[in-house]
Design a protein around this nucleic acid. Structure first.
Lengths: 339, 339
DNA sequence: TAATTTTTTGGAAGCCCTACCAATACTATG
DNA sequence: CATAGTATTGGTAGGGCTTCCAAAAAATTA
C-alpha cells in the first residue's frame, strides 16, 4: 500500500504544491474552486500528509512530552489520563516517559524528550534542582510547564498545590477529634511533596502545642511495601499513638492492613488518614478518610497551559494554584483514649 | 540557544556530511581518526541530531504507538508501564493514546498513530472487528502486534492469554469448595475478554453439572460503579447464592463493599472471587482471592515482538501465550451452607 | 480603459538528515 | 612495481512538506 504524497495530489488536482499545502493548512486566500479540486484529489488518492515531513518543515511536531516518575500507580495514572485526554481533544499527542528515581535519569529523560522535538514538556519531577528547571525554562525553545511543584522564579510555569496545607488539614482534623499522639508515615523526603506533607503535619502539631515525637515518625517511600514496614515499626516500637497520618493512600492502605494483622482496630483503636484520594480509597475497609488531591484536573490545566503558551490558543485562563480538600470517611474517629 | 546542525559539525571536523552521519549511526568503515574528529566536534558544538529529520530521511521514527481503552485504572497502567519501560531500554519511545469505547474511536486512534509515523503499533482493542485487524496487519507497512486478544489468522501477531481458562479456574475452585449457587458479575459483553471470562464461568458450571441460573448473572462494566450496581441487584433479587465470581478486581472490591453494607459477611456468608490480581487486591479487606493475569509481562513481550519484527533484533524468542494462575487469599472459603 | 489594489497562484529554496554511488586512499599479493 | 582487492571518504540526490516571494489573475477604482 504505497502512500501517496503531496506531489500526486497536486498533479491530480492540477494545481501547485503550495496550493495543496494551503488547503491542508486552512490558509486564507484560497479560492473555492482550488479548494474543492484539492479536496477531491485528496479523497480520491486517500492521501494522508506525512507527519514527519510536516514537522520538519514547520518546526512543530504537535507532540508534547510528558515526564512522570512512573507510569503505573493510581496517582500518576490519573495525571497521565488527564493529560492524554485533554491533548487528544486538541489533536496533539503525548510522548510519555518515566523518569526513574534519581537526578541523572530525570535529566536524561528531559533531554530525550527535547531531542524528540517535542513542542512542549509537562514535567512532574522530583530530583532535578530548581536551578536546573529555571535554566531549562528560560533557555530552551521548548516550552516547559511544571506540575506539582512551585518554583518562585518561574511561577508562571507551575501548576501546583499546597501540600503543606493538605497535610495540615489532615493533622488538624485528627487533633480536633481529640488525638494527641499522632504518628506520621512519610513519603521519601528526597521528594519535595513528601517533605511538604511532612512539614504540614509538624506545623499542625506546633500550632496546637503538641510536641513532635520523632519516634512516631517513619520515612517510607509512598509504596505499600514501605507503608507496611513503617506501620509495623510504629506498632513494634510500643510508643502509644491513637492516629496515624499517611503521606499517601497507598501507604494508608498498607497501614490499615498491618493494623488489622496486629489486632489494632481501625478506627476504634487507631485512626488512619490517607492523602490523595485515589479511586480505590473508598473501597478499602474501612473506607479511607483522606485528602482530595485534584491531580487529574491539574494535569488538564497543564495541557491548557501548553495550548495557550505554545499553540497560541487564545481565551484560555490558567489557574496555577489548586487546593486540597478533606474527605471524611470511616477510617478516622474521635479519640477514645484518655491521656 | 540556536541548535547546531550536521553541517556545522562536518565543517568543524573538516570532514563530509556523510562521515558525520556514519559516525553518528555507528557504521562500519570509519577510521578512528575521522571518528574522533567528528566526536570532538559534536562535543564542542553540543550537537544533537534532529530527530525529525532523521525520521524523514531514514523512514524510521523509533516510536511505537500504543493504544489502550483508557490510560488510568490498575490494569491498563500495568500494561503501559511494561511497554514504556521495555521500550525505553531499547531507546525507543511510546506514543500512547486511549481508544475510547466504540469502534469508530478505535479506528480513528489507530489511524492517528499510523499517521504519526509510528514504526509499529501495540494494540489492546475491543471493538474493532477481527477482519479489520487482519487487514490492518496484512496491508499496512506499519507492524502490528495485538495484545490480549487471539485471532487465528494472525496468531503470529497476538500476545494472548486464555481468559476462558482463568475464569474456569476461578469458578472450579469455588465449586471444589462446595459452592453450588455461584453468581457472576460480568464485564461488558461487547468486549471479547469479558465474553471469554463469562464463558469460562459457564463452562465450569456445565462440567460440574450445575445449571446456569441467569438470575445469578449480571452484566456490569468492569468499573466499581458497575460492580456496585451488580452486587446490589444480586442481593436484592433474593436469589440464594454463596459465592460470586467477578470479572475483575475492581468490581470485586465494589462487591465486597456492597456485601458489607448489606450485612453479608465475606467470606463466611459469601465468597468473592476477583480477576486480574491488580496491585491493591491484597490490601483489600478481606484480601481478595483472584486470578493472576500477567499483563505487565505480556506488555513487555509485545515490545519484544516489536523489537524482533520491526527493529530486526535477533535472538529474541517470542512467547505468544500466557497463563493465568489462581491466587488464594481470604475472600473465599468453603461453602458452609447446606443445600 | 488604464491604473491600482487585492486575491490567488506557482516556483523554488529550504528544513536536517540518510543512503547510495563513485572516487580515492590504502593494503596485500604476485 | 603493477594489480587487485578492501577500507574509507565525499558528493549528491532525495525524504515530503512549508513558506516566502514574485507573478498572475481578479476585483476595484478612477
Amino acid at each position: 500500500m504505497k502512500m501517496s504524497t503531496i506531489y500526486q495530489v497536486s498533479e491530480l488536482a492540477g494545481v501547485s504544491l503550495s496550493s495543496v499545502s494551503r488547503v491542508m493548512n486552512n490558509h486564507e486566500h484560497v479560492s473555492e474552486k482550488t479548494k474543492s479540486k484539492v479536496l477531491s484529489a485528496i479523497a480520491e488518492l486517500d492521501y494522508r500528509p506525512n507527519f514527519t515531513a510536516r514537522s520538519l518543515a514547520s518546526k512543530c511536531s504537535n507532540s508534547v512530552g510528558v515526564l512522570v516518575a512512573e507510569i503505573s500507580g493510581p496517582f500518576y495514572s490519573d495525571l497521565l489520563s488527564g493529560v492524554e485526554s485533554e491533548l487528544s481533544h486538541a489533536n496533539k499527542h503525548a510522548v510519555i516517559i518515566s523518569g526513574g528515581s534519581n537526578e541523572k535519569k530525570e535529566i536524561d529523560a528531559i533531554q530525550f524528550l527535547i531531542d524528540r522535538n517535542c513542542d512542549a514538556l509537562i514535567l512532574c519531577v522530583d530530583f532535578v534542582s530548581d536551578e536546573y528547571l529555571i535554566n531549562l525554562t528560560n533557555d530552551s525553545t521548548t516550552k516547559v510547564v511544571i506540575i506539582n511543584r512551585f518554583i518562585e522564579k518561574i511561577s508562571d510555569h507551575c501548576i501546583f498545590i499546597d501540600n503543606i496545607l493538605g497535610s495540615y488539614q489532615a493533622t488538624e482534623y485528627l487533633i480536633q477529634n481529640g488525638h494527641k499522639n499522632i504518628a506520621y508515615l512519610s513519603g521519601p523526603l528526597s521528594k519535595a511533596d513528601a517533605k511538604d506533607r511532612f512539614n504540614g503535619y509538624q506545623k499542625a502539631l506546633i500550632d496546637n502545642k503538641i510536641s513532635l515525637d520523632k519516634a512516631l515518625t517513619f520515612e517510607a517511600d509512598y509504596t505499600t511495601i514501605g507503608g507496611r514496614a513503617g506501620m509495623l515499626s510504629l506498632i513494634k516500637s510500643n510508643k502509644a499513638f491513637t492516629a496515624v497520618v499517611c503521606a499517601n493512600d497507598e501507604m494508608a492502605s498498607a497501614a490499615m492492613r498491618v493494623a488489622r494483622e496486629n489486632k489494632v482496630r481501625v478506627p476504634e483503636d487507631c485512626s488512619i488518614m490517607g492523602f490523595d484520594n485515589v479511586y480505590f480509597s473508598e473501597y478499602l475497609y474501612p473506607q479511607l478518610t483522606t485528602i482530595e488531591y485534584p491531580i487529574n484536573k491539574m494535569a488538564k490545566m497543564a495541557v491548557q497551559w501548553v495550548l495557550k503558551n505554545k499553540y497560541k490558543q487564545k481565551k484560555i485562563t490558567i489557574k496555577h494554584q489548586f487546593y486540597t480538600e478533606l474527605i471524611i470517611r470511616e477510617s478516622t474517629q474521635f479519640c477514645s483514649i484518655k491521656t
